[in-house]
Design a protein around this nucleic acid. Structure first.
Lengths: 112, 112
DNA sequence: ATATATACATAGGTTTATTATGTATATATT
DNA sequence: AATATATACATAATAAACCTATGTATATAT
């Protein structure tokens, strides 16, 4: 997933859900490019990580899909389901707490 | 490692190295208690995660050990080697960048 | 004609942590 | 005296997540 970083393990679902919460619908390739753009190339979301993750989120009922043909190529659009909209809220809260705890453990916080 | 959280995967080595950078020497059980205390019980570092991680860091030459008997029980103290002291700096920098990127990706940052 | 970008997908392997054990001593509780 | 909890180490089996590599296919740029 990352150029040189094991740290993002476990954050992928949250990242995907959050992107979809602010974009209505996105397709896989678009998500990889968005992540690349936001992190200025620091984080490269690989296909081998993304697609299985999308499939799992769909199987869990958090994402809905619709397929379109654009320029003779298939595009599979993903969007949040009702459950997905709820999930993204708890996932973001979880991520906030994670960052907070990690900053505490690594002394990266100015004060509490 | 965590009560209900997959997110800490990949951060364990950094956490251990950082604790040892500010404590001169620590033994395994002490590390689990320290992590529990710092996170107020939120993050429980399991033995099945900690000891293999310590062994790996030692095998990589980042930690040095010395054994003592206290109250008839064995204690294995770990401390940073020269390489470990260098490593902790780069690991902390990596963690900082990771947090920063994650905050960007999840819109958890006020501004850049 | 070839390389790169777009767009999907999966198989095999590695890493990491969890759960479950196991050994052993000390202390607190019933 | 018996039992539970805390201290202190360790490893085996399993699960989860991601990476690398591969595969298919079309469009565009060189």
């Amino acid at each position: 997933m990352a150029i040189n970083n094991e740290l993002f393990k476990g954050t992928l679902q949250t990242i995907i859900l959050n992107l979809l919460s602010e974009n209505e619908r996105m397709y896989g390739y678009e998500i990889t490019q968005k992540v690349k753009f936001i992190t200025q190339g620091e984080l490269l979301l690989k296909e081998g990580a993304l697609y299985p993750a999308l499939h799992k989120l769909e199987a869990d009922g958090l994402l809905e899909t619709s397929t379109e043909i654009v320029d003779n190529r298939v595009r599979k659009y993903y969007s949040l389901s009702k459950d997905g909209e709820k999930k993204v809220i708890s996932k973001l809260q979880e991520a906030k707490e994670f960052i907070s705890q990690l900053q505490l453990l690594l002394n990266l916080k100015p004060a509490s």
